[in-house]
Protein backbone atom coordinates (compact mmCIF):
# COMPACT_ATOMS: atom_id res chain seq x y z
CA UNK A 1 0.00 0.00 0.00
CA UNK A 2 1.42 3.35 -1.07
CA UNK A 3 0.30 6.93 -0.57
CA UNK A 4 0.02 9.39 -3.48
CA UNK A 5 3.36 11.08 -2.68
CA UNK A 6 5.23 7.76 -2.88
CA UNK A 7 3.50 6.86 -6.12
CA UNK A 8 4.37 10.26 -7.54
CA UNK A 9 8.06 9.75 -6.67
CA UNK A 10 8.02 6.33 -8.34
CA UNK A 11 6.46 7.78 -11.49
CA UNK A 12 8.81 10.78 -11.51
CA UNK A 13 11.86 8.48 -11.38
CA UNK A 14 10.49 6.30 -14.15
CA UNK A 15 9.11 8.93 -16.57
CA UNK A 16 10.89 12.22 -15.73
CA UNK A 17 9.36 15.00 -17.88
CA UNK A 18 6.15 13.16 -18.76
CA UNK A 19 5.01 13.61 -15.16
CA UNK A 20 4.15 17.30 -14.91
CA UNK A 21 3.66 17.60 -11.18
CA UNK A 22 1.73 16.77 -8.04
CA UNK A 23 -1.23 19.00 -7.21
CA UNK A 24 -1.60 19.08 -3.44
CA UNK A 25 -4.00 22.02 -3.04
CA UNK A 26 -7.06 19.90 -3.70
CA UNK A 27 -9.81 19.25 -1.16
CA UNK A 28 -9.46 15.53 -1.86
CA UNK A 29 -6.34 13.48 -2.39
CA UNK A 30 -3.28 14.83 -4.29
CA UNK A 31 -3.51 14.58 -8.07
CA UNK A 32 -0.69 13.57 -10.42
CA UNK A 33 -0.60 15.67 -13.61
CA UNK A 34 0.57 13.89 -16.75
CA UNK A 35 1.31 14.74 -20.39
CA UNK A 36 -1.85 13.91 -22.42
CA UNK A 37 -0.03 12.16 -25.25
CA UNK A 38 1.97 9.88 -22.92
CA UNK A 39 -0.79 8.86 -20.51
CA UNK A 40 -0.96 5.36 -21.99
CA UNK A 41 2.70 4.62 -21.12
CA UNK A 42 2.16 5.80 -17.55
CA UNK A 43 -1.03 3.76 -17.33
CA UNK A 44 0.62 0.58 -18.49
CA UNK A 45 3.39 1.06 -15.92
CA UNK A 46 0.85 1.70 -13.15
CA UNK A 47 -1.06 -1.45 -14.03
CA UNK A 48 1.86 -3.85 -14.52
CA UNK A 49 4.35 -2.69 -11.88
CA UNK A 50 4.52 -5.23 -9.05
CA UNK A 51 4.42 -2.66 -6.24
CA UNK A 52 1.58 -0.62 -7.78
CA UNK A 53 -0.78 -3.08 -9.50
CA UNK A 54 -3.49 -0.57 -10.43
CA UNK A 55 -5.76 -3.14 -12.02
CA UNK A 56 -8.97 -1.11 -11.84
CA UNK A 57 -9.90 2.16 -13.51
CA UNK A 58 -12.77 3.22 -11.28
CA UNK A 59 -13.82 6.19 -13.38
CA UNK A 60 -12.57 8.35 -16.20
CA UNK A 61 -14.17 11.77 -16.40
CA UNK A 62 -13.88 14.84 -18.55
CA UNK A 63 -13.83 18.35 -17.12
CA UNK A 64 -14.16 21.73 -18.77
CA UNK A 65 -11.66 23.88 -16.85
CA UNK A 66 -13.13 27.06 -18.44
CA UNK A 67 -9.80 28.83 -17.82
CA UNK A 68 -9.57 30.49 -21.23
CA UNK A 69 -10.51 34.05 -22.08
CA UNK A 70 -14.21 34.78 -22.32
CA UNK A 71 -15.24 36.49 -25.55
CA UNK A 72 -18.65 37.58 -26.81
CA UNK A 73 -19.62 36.10 -30.14
CA UNK A 74 -21.89 37.74 -32.73
CA UNK A 75 -25.11 36.85 -30.87
CA UNK A 76 -23.80 38.23 -27.58
CA UNK A 77 -23.36 34.77 -26.09
CA UNK A 78 -20.26 34.14 -24.05
CA UNK A 79 -17.71 31.85 -25.68
CA UNK A 80 -14.45 30.57 -24.20
CA UNK A 81 -11.31 30.74 -26.26
CA UNK A 82 -8.07 29.10 -25.25
CA UNK A 83 -7.54 27.32 -21.97
CA UNK A 84 -7.81 23.61 -21.39
CA UNK A 85 -10.07 20.61 -21.07
CA UNK A 86 -9.01 17.94 -18.59
CA UNK A 87 -9.44 14.23 -18.13
CA UNK A 88 -9.28 12.69 -14.66
CA UNK A 89 -8.49 9.04 -13.98
CA UNK A 90 -9.34 7.45 -10.64
CA UNK A 91 -7.36 4.26 -10.21
CA UNK A 92 -7.65 1.58 -7.58
CA UNK A 93 -5.61 -1.49 -6.86
CA UNK A 94 -7.92 -4.31 -5.78
CA UNK A 95 -4.84 -6.27 -4.77
CA UNK A 96 -2.88 -3.68 -2.78
CA UNK A 97 -5.89 -1.54 -1.73
CA UNK A 98 -4.40 1.81 -2.67
CA UNK A 99 -5.69 4.57 -4.89
CA UNK A 100 -4.34 7.34 -7.07
CA UNK A 101 -5.88 10.13 -9.14
CA UNK A 102 -4.31 11.19 -12.42
CA UNK A 103 -5.16 14.21 -14.51
CA UNK A 104 -4.16 15.36 -17.92
CA UNK A 105 -4.95 18.70 -19.54
CA UNK A 106 -5.23 19.31 -23.24
CA UNK A 107 -5.77 22.52 -25.25
CA UNK A 108 -9.44 23.39 -25.79
CA UNK A 109 -8.96 24.16 -29.49
CA UNK A 110 -7.48 20.73 -30.29
CA UNK A 111 -8.22 18.45 -27.34
CA UNK A 112 -6.31 15.23 -27.88
CA UNK A 113 -5.54 12.62 -25.26
CA UNK A 114 -4.01 9.21 -25.80
CA UNK A 115 -6.55 6.43 -25.17
CA UNK A 116 -6.06 3.97 -22.30
CA UNK A 117 -8.46 1.49 -23.90
CA UNK A 118 -5.71 -1.13 -24.26
CA UNK A 119 -4.84 -0.91 -20.56
CA UNK A 120 -8.25 -0.79 -18.86
CA UNK A 121 -11.19 -1.88 -21.00
CA UNK A 122 -13.48 0.07 -18.66
CA UNK A 123 -12.27 3.19 -20.39
CA UNK A 124 -14.01 2.23 -23.64
CA UNK A 125 -17.41 3.73 -22.77
CA UNK A 126 -15.95 6.31 -20.36
CA UNK A 127 -13.82 7.77 -23.13
CA UNK A 128 -16.78 7.73 -25.47
CA UNK A 129 -18.77 9.66 -22.87
CA UNK A 130 -15.99 12.23 -22.39
CA UNK A 131 -15.88 12.58 -26.17
CA UNK A 132 -19.67 12.92 -26.33
CA UNK A 133 -19.94 15.54 -23.58
CA UNK A 134 -16.69 17.52 -24.02
CA UNK A 135 -15.39 16.68 -27.50
CA UNK A 136 -12.11 15.31 -26.21
CA UNK A 137 -10.50 13.20 -28.92
CA UNK A 138 -9.02 9.97 -27.55
CA UNK A 139 -6.24 9.01 -29.93
CA UNK A 140 -6.18 5.28 -30.82
CA UNK A 141 -9.60 4.58 -29.31
CA UNK A 142 -11.05 1.85 -31.57
CA UNK A 143 -14.64 3.12 -31.69
CA UNK A 144 -14.90 6.78 -30.76
CA UNK A 145 -18.59 7.52 -31.37
CA UNK A 146 -21.12 9.47 -29.33
CA UNK A 147 -22.59 7.27 -26.64
CA UNK A 148 -25.48 9.24 -25.04
CA UNK A 149 -26.44 11.97 -27.47
CA UNK A 150 -27.89 11.03 -30.88
CA UNK A 151 -25.26 10.07 -33.45
CA UNK A 152 -26.36 12.91 -35.69
CA UNK A 153 -26.20 15.58 -32.93
CA UNK A 154 -24.56 18.59 -34.54
CA UNK A 155 -24.94 21.26 -31.88
CA UNK A 156 -21.64 20.48 -30.17
CA UNK A 157 -20.68 19.09 -26.78
CA UNK A 158 -23.32 19.71 -24.07
CA UNK A 159 -21.17 19.82 -20.93
CA UNK A 160 -18.80 22.48 -22.20
CA UNK A 161 -19.34 25.70 -20.30
CA UNK A 162 -19.98 27.71 -23.48
CA UNK A 163 -22.39 25.16 -25.00
CA UNK A 164 -25.47 26.57 -26.68
CA UNK A 165 -28.54 24.37 -27.10
CA UNK A 166 -30.04 24.36 -30.60
CA UNK A 167 -33.52 25.75 -31.34
CA UNK A 168 -34.65 22.55 -33.10
CA UNK A 169 -33.60 18.92 -33.42
CA UNK A 170 -35.23 16.99 -36.26
CA UNK A 171 -38.19 19.37 -36.27
CA UNK A 172 -38.70 19.12 -32.50
CA UNK A 173 -38.42 22.36 -30.56
CA UNK A 174 -35.73 21.97 -27.89
CA UNK A 175 -36.04 25.00 -25.51
CA UNK A 176 -38.90 25.08 -23.03
Amino acid sequence: MKNPEEIFELLKNEFKDIILGLEKETPTEPIVAIDPMQINKVGLFLRDNDILKFDSLMVLSGVDDANGTKVKDDDGAEMISGGTLSVYYHLHSTNLKHKITLKTSTPRENPQVESVYNIWRTSDWHEREAYDMFGIIFVNHPDLRRILMPYDWEAGYPLRKDYKNPEFYKGMKVPY
Partner: peptide, 20 residues
Protein backbone atom coordinates in the same frame (compact mmCIF):
# COMPACT_ATOMS: atom_id res chain seq x y z
CA UNK B 1 -46.10 16.52 -19.70
CA UNK B 2 -43.68 19.42 -19.97
CA UNK B 3 -40.08 18.37 -19.34
CA UNK B 4 -40.40 18.33 -15.54
CA UNK B 5 -37.18 19.12 -13.66
CA UNK B 6 -35.29 19.17 -16.95
CA UNK B 7 -37.25 22.12 -18.30
CA UNK B 8 -34.33 24.56 -18.28
CA UNK B 9 -31.02 22.71 -18.31
CA UNK B 10 -32.13 19.47 -19.93
CA UNK B 11 -30.28 19.86 -23.22
CA UNK B 12 -31.31 16.31 -24.15
CA UNK B 13 -34.95 16.32 -22.98
CA UNK B 14 -38.07 16.91 -25.05
CA UNK B 15 -40.15 19.48 -23.14
CA UNK B 16 -43.45 17.63 -23.39
CA UNK B 17 -44.39 14.61 -25.47
CA UNK B 18 -47.24 16.63 -27.02
CA UNK B 19 -44.62 18.30 -29.20
CA UNK B 20 -44.34 14.99 -31.05
Amino acid sequence: NCGGPYWEHGYHVLKGIDRV
